[in-house]
């Protein structure tokens, strides 16, 4: 009974997502493209940042490596082999990055991940200019012939990312990761090989993030280092997960839906509102305020808070029933 009920929501969502392209304009299809893409990358980030509790602020590193691998190889070895190469290379790159950063904890881990992503941004812009063309930008081969098909590519990517993270999170590995988040030292003393599991989570996370970067590049048709390696990408992924709820299965999707629609709505609603000065800045100001308020008052995020509220309600109802039955 309970098992069936837990499937209702995902199946409903899938039906809605399947109908959208037949009703929505190209513009809204693109908005959903970015929702799916960043939700997928958010799912990937959630493994490391949510379940394992390791605050990575440098996921743009994997996003960028995936994007550039695809961009550089697609013309030569074909689109799908290039996507595979992007997955492989971003995973491989995560190994040394993980080995370095996971020696650190708390804020030092977060700082190290930023430093790595920034380092890659500078290198891609300057030192590896012969390869990346620097900020002059690369033209990127499209993945699919019709631009409307990217909707399905991103949806497929999101479902894949969800399936993998959901499988991992609900398995023994997921419990180990949560044990690490709660107390790493204790986890270690109960013979969980914490470095191994953290690295495992990062490798899977990097693989999915790299694929996300490749899809991003293919849809845009052109990339430069600032589009994919920048802190803005890293932060967006973190913030949408926080908003939706870290360490919850659906959190990143909920966060991505809200942020994309809010950003689209604000952009169009605020244009020309003179006293704001810069409507886009006002939108980002609200974005910052939202993050502050969520951290202060709703640290479990939207999904986490709702789940707690729902469970509390169910428990109350049940206890009422039992007392009623008792009387």
């Amino acid at each position: 009974m309970n098992r069936i009920r837990s499937w209702i929501l995902p199946v409903l969502a899938l039906i809605v997502f399947a109908v959208i392209p037949f009703t929505a304009s190209f513009y809204y299809q693109q908005i959903f493209f970015y929702i799916f893409l960043f939700a997928g990358v958010g799912f990937a980030w959630n493994l490391v940042g949510g379940y394992a509790g390791q605050l990575s602020l440098g996921h743009a590193a994997f996003f960028g490596i995936g994007a550039y691998t695809y961009a550089l190889l697609a013309q030569h070895i074909g689109v799908w082999p290039a996507l595979l190469a992007a997955a492989v290379l971003s995973t491989v790159s995560a190994a040394p990055i993980g080995l370095i950063c996971f020696r650190l904890r708390g804020p030092y881990f977060a700082l190290a991940t930023i430093a790595v992503a920034q380092l890659l941004l500078v290198l891609a812009t300057n030192q590896f200019k012969d390869l990346t063309q620097g900020a002059a930008g690369l033209l990127v081969q499209g993945m699919v012939s019709d631009p409307s098909l990217y909707y399905w590519v991103a949806l497929g990517f999101m479902i894949l990312a969800f399936a993998i993270t959901a499988l991992l999170a609900t398995s023994k590995t997921g419990y180990y990761l949560m044990a690490i988040r709660e107390d790493e030292d204790t986890a270690q003393t109960v013979t969980i090989n914490t470095p191994l599991y953290k690295l495992y989570a990062l490798l899977v996370s990097a693989l999915l993030t790299g694929v996300g970067g490749a899809i991003f590049a293919a849809n845009l048709g052109t990339i430069q280092p600032n589009d994919v390696f920048s802190g803005a990408i890293s932060n967006q992924v973190v913030f949408l997960s926080i908003l939706g709820g870290t360490g919850t299965l659906f959190g990143p999707l909920v966060g991505a839906v809200i942020l994309e629609f809010a950003s689209d709505w604000l952009k169009n609603a605020l244009t020309g509102v003179a006293w704001l000065g810069d409507p886009n800045a006002f939108a980002f100001f609200l974005y910052g305020l939202l993050i502050v308020l969520v951290v202060m008052f709703m640290p479990a995020g939207i999904v986490g808070t709702l789940t707690k509220w729902w469970k509390g309600r169910v428990a109350r109802v049940q206890s009422q029933r039992t007392t009623a039955a008792g009387v």
Binding site: A269, L270, T271, G272, V273, A274, W275, F282, L286
Partner: peptide, 13 residues
């Protein structure tokens, strides 16, 4: 407030 402002946006074009 943001919503109220929308009314003015026609001025831009």
């Amino acid at each position: 407030l943001a919503g109220c402002g929308t009314g003015n946006s026609g001025a831009q074009g």
